[in-house]
C-alpha cells in the first residue's frame, strides 16, 4: 500500500537500524586481528581519529541545526561508526581473498582511506534520516552531500575512491541509497574532483610522464 512520506522515512530509518543491530561501535575481534597483522599497528590512530571526528561532527551538526540537537548529531555519528567498522571488515576480507595477503598496513594507516570510509558511512546515515525531521531548515544548513566532505576535510577524489567498494561490501544498502551514492560519484567526477587542490591533477601529470611527453603542445583552444 502507498506510504505517506513520514511512514516511508520511518521505514527507511528502521531498515538501517535493523541492519546495524548486531554492529558494534568498536572494532570487532576480526578487525583487531587485521590491525595487529599490520607492519605498523593502526589501532590507536583509528580510535583517536574516530574520537576526534566525533567531536567535530557533533559541533558542526549543532551549529547547523541548533545547539539543542547536538546529542542527536552525535547519535547519528555513532550509527555511522558502526557501519564503518562493518564495511571495513567486509572490505578487508574481500581484499584478503583477492590478494592473498593479511597485512594491510599501508591502507589502514592511510587517514584519507579511513576518513573517506567514515564519511561515506555518515553520508548514508544522513541521507537515511534526510531533512524531514528539521522543517524550516535553510539552504545554508543543508547537511546533505557534500557537507560531510567539508566537515571532515575529505578530498572529493578520495571519497570517490571508496564508494564502489563500499557498495560491494554492504549488501544491506537499499536501491535508493545506492542511487544516492552513485549521484555523489557523478557530482564528484563532474565538478568536485576538479577543484584546484584536487590530487587528480598530479595523478594526470604522473600518468602523462610515465607514458612519455607528447611531441606537440595542445593548442590553447583545447
Amino acid at each position: 500500500p502507498p506510504q505517506t512520506p513520514v511512514r516511508a522515512a520511518m521505514n527507511t530509518i528502521q531498515h538501517l537500524m535493523n541492519s546495524l543491530a548486531a554492529a558494534s561501535d568498536k572494532p570487532s575481534s576480526t578487525l583487531i586481528s587485521y590491525f595487529n597483522n599490520c607492519t605498523s599497528n593502526p589501532t590507536n590512530d583509528i580510535l583517536e581519529r574516530v574520537n576526534h571526528l566525533g567531536k567535530i561532527f557533533k559541533e558542526r551538526f549543532a551549529e547547523a541545526v541548533g545547539q539543542g540537537c547536538a546529542e542527536i548529531g552525535f547519535e547519528r555519528f555513532k550509527v555511522g561508526v558502526r557501519l564503518t567498522y562493518r564495511v571495513m571488515e567486509s572490505m578487508l576480507k574481500s581484499e584478503e581473498q583477492r590478494l592473498s595477503v593479511q597485512n594491510f598496513s599501508k591502507l589502514l594507516n592511510d587517514s584519507a582511506f579511513h576518513k573517506s570510509l567514515l564519511g561515506c558511512s555518515i553520508e548514508v546515515v544522513m541521507a537515511t534520516y534526510g531533512r524531514s525531521a528539521f522543517d524550516g531548515i535553510s539552504r545554508e544548513t543543508d547537511l546533505s552531500f557534500p557537507w560531510i566532505l567539508e566537515v571532515f576535510k575529505i578530498k572529493p577524489y578520495d571519497f570517490y575512491k571508496v564508494i564502489e567498494s563500499f557498495i560491494k561490501a554492504e549488501p544491506s544498502l537499499t536501491r535508493e541509497m545506492i542511487k544516492h551514492l552513485e549521484s555523489c560519484e557523478h557530482r564528484i567526477m563532474e565538478t568536485l574532483a576538479w577543484q584546484s587542490d584536487s590530487p587528480i591533477f598530479e595523478l594526470i601529470r604522473q600518468s602523462r610522464d610515465r607514458e612519455g611527453q607528447v611531441d606537440q603542445p595542445e593548442p590553447t583552444s583545447c
Binding site: 594491510f104 591502507l107 567498494s165 552513485e182
Partner: peptide, 21 residues
C-alpha cells in the same frame, strides 16, 4: 543494485585505489 555501474576492472580493488599494491 543491478543498475549501478561497477567500474573497477578485474584485479582492481580498494588497495590499488589507495596506492597500496
Amino acid at each position: 543494485c543491478n543498475d549501478y555501474h561497477f567500474g573497477l576492472e578485474e584485479g582492481e580493488g580498494i588497495s590499488e585505489l589507495f596506492d597500496c599494491d
